[in-house]
Computed example of a mutant assay.
Amino acid sequence: MNVLICDDSGFARKQLARALPREWDIRLHEAGDGQEGLEQILMGHGDLVLLDLTMPRMDGYDVLETLQREGIRSKVLVVSGDIQPEAHARVMALGALDFIKKPASPETLHAFLRQHGFWQPREESVTEPQASPAPAPQHAPPSGPLLTPQSRDLYQELANVAMGQAADLLARLLGAFVVLPIPNVNVLEVSELHMALSAAAESDTLSAVCQGFIGAGIAGEALLLFHDASFAELARLMKHEGELDRAAELELLMDTANVLIGAFLRGFSAQLDTHFSQGHPVLLGQHRPIHQLIQTNQSRWRRTLAIEINYRLQGHKVQCDLLLLFTEDSIATMDHKVQHLL
């Protein structure tokens, strides 16, 4: 059997490959996005496809639609961090066999493979995953907090899983489908951060909330930038009654921030096997240009690991940007924590 793992994250592909049964007699192939995945399928490399949803060029939904439209008979198991009920319903309607939540443990993946008749353990075989090699000797963290391609890919995948958990809560709260982007991960100087924020906001006025977090040598701030043009639609989705004044908008903003920031930090910290204590959310400003909001926190932001996520609701004029800004000192600590994953 030809098995294709289609995911834009090299880390996620390796993680899935390691989770497959050791004794399973297959030819394993990989693709870094949906377009490459379709090419591999057309080459006969996709009897079974383990398919991510959030990918560049062509996402998982596009792949499923193409397979269905062209009558291509590859079997597809979706493996995704987007756990919204509508995401599950959409992929099943497009012909997927099943939906597996990221990160998929070997036990979970084996159970799905057995359930759908792709693999059965031999009686004499051991079905537990192969033991991980002994960890490498611990060395002092590198002095320069620079991201390697491997670590950037890993942080992007960790953010992808946490982003999906936050989107699921928001989707259930609003009764709408949250369109998920590919998280943007970079180490930025303060001037570069200002440029990134300005580009995210363009010419729109914004309302913004920040919330600090700290735990086990990791500290930072979560910043939610809410586009002011979104308030009226958000109020309608939340069934807000009464006048939509600044006080009502602030309440809507804080509710959205609590869902997105809280859920993301829980999902991200759980993957780091740590716990974040969160400070009280602080309003940076309402209906203000981005440069004024940046000026408020300029003294606190220096070099940072920045994770940027743009959330928008399908069919609704609601858009917000979530940025996770980790302090320079935190980067070496996080790099050390994720070495076992790499």
Rank of each mutant, 00 (worst) to 15 (best):
I41Q: 12
H340Y: 00
V259G: 01
D255W: 00
D153L: 03
M92P: 01
I5M: 05
L283F: 04
G71H: 09
A247L: 11
Y311S: 04
E128W: 06
G37L: 07
Q278V: 02
L293Q: 10
G215A: 04
M1N: 10
E30F: 14
R172G: 08
P85D: 10
L253V: 05
R73H: 12
L147N: 00
Q319R: 15
Q271G: 12
Q40M: 10
W301G: 11
R236W: 14
E202S: 05
L38Q: 05
G175S: 07
V190T: 14
L305M: 12
A332F: 00
E243M: 07
L28R: 10
N297R: 13
R303P: 13
G71I: 11
R57V: 15
Y311V: 06
R18M: 13
Q292N: 12
E23Q: 15
G71P: 09
H45G: 09
H45D: 08
G44R: 14
G285F: 05
L146P: 06
R90Y: 03
L283P: 03
A208H: 05
F326C: 07
T108G: 07
K317N: 12
C210H: 09
H227S: 04
Q120S: 15
P181W: 05
L206K: 04
E107K: 15
L322N: 02
L323R: 07
D204S: 04
D245Y: 11
N297A: 09
A96G: 11
F264R: 01
R266P: 08
H139K: 03
V209A: 08
V126R: 13
L206I: 12
L51N: 01
T256L: 09
W301Q: 08
S9K: 04
I290S: 07
L38D: 11
T333Q: 03
L244V: 13
L188D: 13
L146V: 13
I309V: 09
V49A: 09
L313C: 01
Y61M: 07
D168F: 12
G217W: 11
H316F: 11
A31M: 11
G175I: 03
I294K: 05
P135M: 02
F118G: 00
I261Q: 00
Q292M: 10
L113Y: 09
Q130D: 11
N310D: 15
K14L: 07
R73I: 02
R57L: 11
Q165W: 10
E123D: 15
E23M: 13
V338C: 07
I83H: 14
L253H: 02
N2D: 15
Q278T: 07
D329N: 15
A17T: 08
K337L: 14
N160Q: 07
G144Y: 08
N2S: 14
P103N: 07
D25A: 14
E30N: 09
G144R: 09
A222G: 11
S125I: 02
A12Q: 09
A222T: 08
G315P: 01
L188K: 15
L174I: 03
F213A: 05
E221T: 10
S191M: 04
Q115W: 00
